[in-house]
Amino acid sequence: MRILIIALFVVLVALSLMIGSLGGVTPKALLAGDETALRVLLYSRIPRTAAIILSAAGLSVAGLIMQAISRNKFMSPATSGTTDAAAFGLLMSFIFLSKQSGIVQTLFAFVFALVATLLFTSVINRLKLREVVYIPLLGMMYGGLISALTTAVAYRFDAMQMMASIGLGSFARLGNFAIVYIVVAPLILSVMYASKFSIIGLGEDFAKNLGVRYRRVVFLGLAVISLISAATFVAVGPLPFIGLIIPNMATSFYGDNLKKSIIDLMLFGADFVLVCDILSRLIIYPFEMSVSLTVSIIGGVIFMIYLLRGMYGNRKQKTV
């Protein structure tokens, strides 16, 4: 399985580097020392491909950790208010500090995302809901509330245009890609903490018995999720479904031992978004559609299949 994912990854990266509105970036041209080709590769294609890989890997991991912490397969940064709060934070940085560097924007987005996520999880823990689907539903309402607030504030301060430009995720945006490299830090952290994230999935007492400080690890996990969500949001905008479907597909293969699955999950998430991105560049070539759209369509269909299969499977189990 791993070999397959890696092979696919290599092919897709190569393809992603070759495709674009400017033709001529081919291995042949590069080997011949074609300068324009080289420049396009260095300043446009490589950053773009790196942004895809990092944001996809990041969001997949964020979803995986979110699902481990909440013990809920329907959770993701998009169903806990995290992404929406990141958007709100971005708007705040825009309003208070006007045009800022990506780092400051990310910092704002991160702080708001973290606070909103902490608030949500602590409320959820207090409610002790039995039904797992209520939690992401509540989370979506909560996120909806935040984004409504964002829109209202944006109207009030004439920032609608700025928000609209972020509204759709895109890898064609120039300038902000560098921000996505921030994701590397939380990714490394999450690999280091993979076992701990799995263990806290088995409950507070269980974790404590194994010497894992539950609250600290939960906080760290939420911080990782918020930072990834904030950085990817500032760099490429929202990428829906990634944090939901990629972890679900990966854990149905590898189980919930994060240590075993986390690297493959990153590569798999990157594969998925690379495919979506290549498609969105090819479908209306030489123009391109927003990758959010492609991801939503493909991801939505996969998620539906997943849900239906799950429901069918459950029913089958019940009647036996």
Partner: peptide, 10 residues
């Protein structure tokens, strides 16, 4: 709590 899916070995 059987909240996560792991193997006996895990």
């Amino acid at each position: 709590l059987l909240s996560i899916r792991v193997t006996v070995n895990d």
